[in-house]
Amino acid sequence: MKWITARRRHPLAGYVVVILALALFGVGYAAVAPTSDQAQAQTLAADAPSPEDVDVAEGKTIFDQTCASCHGLDGSGGEFGPDLRDVGPAAIDFQVSTGRMPSMNPDAQMPRKPMVMTEQELADLIAYYNESIRNDGSGADVPYDVPDIEPHPDDFAPLRSDFDSEEAYEEAVEEAEAEYQAALEDYQAEYDAYISGADDTEMGMRLYLTNCAHCHGWSGGGGALTDGRWAPEIHESTPREIYEAMVSGPGAMPMFSDGVIAPEEKQELISYVKTLQAEPDAGGIFNLQRVGQVAEGLIGWVVGLALIVACAIWITAKQRAHD
């Protein structure tokens, strides 16, 4: 303390205090600021599940337990949830796989969250929906040929309790690892094929900039809507989720059917978004989250001008006869 007391009248003391206060504020904010929801990539992209892979009865149980309280046992909707009979399986897949459904608060817009069901449960649910709830082919189907979520090692990991001996378990772990690697490679190949299958940047860019960017932003960073709603950022969205959002129109979003934007045109659009997102920032490692001019102005003032003024203070700092 003595050290501080002795220096509190130093000409630079005021600046030091300001800098410390700013640092403290920054650290404090970082501590209380909400951490973003990280969607866990969970399963492998797949073709349409064959009937023997799904369990419709299980799907009914899931529906009755998690969905029916708001949407009704027959999916016809209720006070808290809309009629599901015409929305189509793409909407179900989108809402559940992005973690927006099931929702605890039917009035509020849901942010993206980790999915609460397993991929198998979702497949069962969709099978049940198609069989018993959906009005005769209405709404869009799940676009199974568009790549979905990257496989995740946890889905392959064996349970220790299933094995008697440590060796057997380790063996299984190794096997699972190999399975996971293979699945990942498959997925990557499928993903790359889908993205690079699009070759008309002009079309993808035009479609995205004229129909999507006004809400989701040029970089897919999202934007404000009215009444406190917002268009979500789409960086974590898989190609399939983007596709499903377009055909099902979640929330306030209008629908872009396969009639107005054909599947291969959607592929161009999705490819444009994902390629742009993966594009390295040629201008520098700090891309300011691609927010643009507001962030640039802020940095110009609080970093640029402040550093230059700090240099000016150094240059002109008082020199006493005995320093």
């Binding site: 015409d86 004229t210 129909n211 129109g249 209008p254 629908m255 872009f256 059917s257 009639g259 107005v260 934007i261």
Partner: peptide, 8 residues
């Protein structure tokens, strides 16, 4: 065919 379509 869609209840809520939009396009530029």
């Amino acid at each position: 065919n869609d209840p809520y379509g939009m396009i530029s």
